[in-house]
Design a protein around this nucleic acid. Sequence first.
DNA 1: TTTTGAGTTGTTCGA
DNA 2: GTCGAACAACTCAAA
Length: 489
Amino acid sequence: MHTVIHWFRRDLRLRDNPALAAAASASDGHVLPLFILDDAILSAPDTGSARVAFLLDSLRALDATLRAQGSRLIIRRGEPRAVLLTFAKQSGAYGLYFNRDYTPLARARDTAVEQALAEHGVAVHTFKEAMLVEPGEVATKAGTPYTVYTPYRRQWAMQLAHTALPAIPAPRLQPVPQAIESVPLPSLAELHRTTDQEILPGGEAAGQTRLDAFIQRHNELGLRGYKAGREQPALNATSRLSAYLRFGCIAPAACLRAAQQLSTQFEPGHPAQQSIETWIGELAWRDFYYQILAYFPYVLDGAFKHQYDALEWDNNEQHFAAWCAGRTGYPIVDAAMRQLAREAWMHNRARMIVASFLTKDLLIDWRRGERYFMRMLIDGDHAANNGGWQWAAGTGTDAQPYFRIFNPVSQGQKFDPQGAYVRRYVPELAQVPERYIHTPWEMPPAEQRRANVQIGRDYPAPIVAHAVQRERALTLYRQARADDTQSGV
DNA sequence: TTTTGAGTTGTTCGA
DNA sequence: GTCGAACAACTCAAA
């Protein structure tokens, strides 16, 4: 026997999978494809049902693809280290292959696994897959990790410029011996979960189809029009690949390759080039925040800039509940929160608006919002979610954001000018005239009657006054900085 | 070592 | 309505 194990984790695909390809070539296709349902993750408060549903769907798709070529996905349940030890012993595998993960918990888990298996004579091989440029591959001249995006991005691009990204085909795998047991893939209900959220179809084929469509679309809804279209949450002008990237249904390398390939079809200086660059920048942001988390794991518990741990939040529970429910009285905020509840996904512009609103208007601790997002989002990713929230809260890596307090009215007017996004997700306001769509509380009573909505009854009046809260937030942040200077940290 | 330029995504005020 | 300046001071990265 010369069997090896490929441990699927966040790489639920066959193509462009370096660990899987290496496992197949080392074993002449005698690969045992394994996924471990880890109860610690499944029952974590951060783990929402939408994400579990997407995971299960992706696992089903993976199993179907494997079966089509005579193999199958082996499912086990339990603590990964113990499961892998038993599984390696039972199967007689001499090697374990997996792609690297970078969150603190994942790294601790993987180190323990490597150690335990090495002690039992199983060689462990790990690969770069989830990131395009790993921590350590770029550093400042001083040898420190980058904490500012722009210079990071420059180096990141230089690094990639002399890295080949050849497509890795799906390997041919030999059938898994009958004797190898697998637990059946549980349903969502069997995991004691339900969701009424509209979940995207999981799996490699669905992800690839989505990427192809985004690359090929010729109007402002595709990659070539991304730079302009991406700013309007009412348009489906983003790739919406986040969940597929989150679970590795699509490879970041495949995304970059597709973008670079499209770029060759346009002259330098063509407007499409800017769109392509902007979108590649999003892949760089992803790596940037992974890298920040890898080097500064404390960001999961507190502010990247320590002085902002001292912020004295209001943390008003009723305000938090209203924010979650999409009943703040600010239409763009409420539309976004209802999109999240309905679709387990939110447009990126909208994420910034609601995050700014929670922290700067409601003065609620960004970690409350971070946790809620993690629970609700189909693409919830610890690194990216944390980075986004810290950015919005002004506690993160960005250098000068203290005055960047979004005005929920002007953001709405700027990025949802006709109110199409608001009308789609806040049906109470569907008939409100354009003039009032982002300020419904200013509608005279007669106008409210015509629009079939009474503010304060059918739709809330604003729960806070933006101008007042903005000043309070500025004072709060000023205070935290002043305290910090005084304490001499 | 010291210095210099710059920092994802904004808002408001006053001319 | 449009436009430019102001909004703290600080830290990072590189020369």
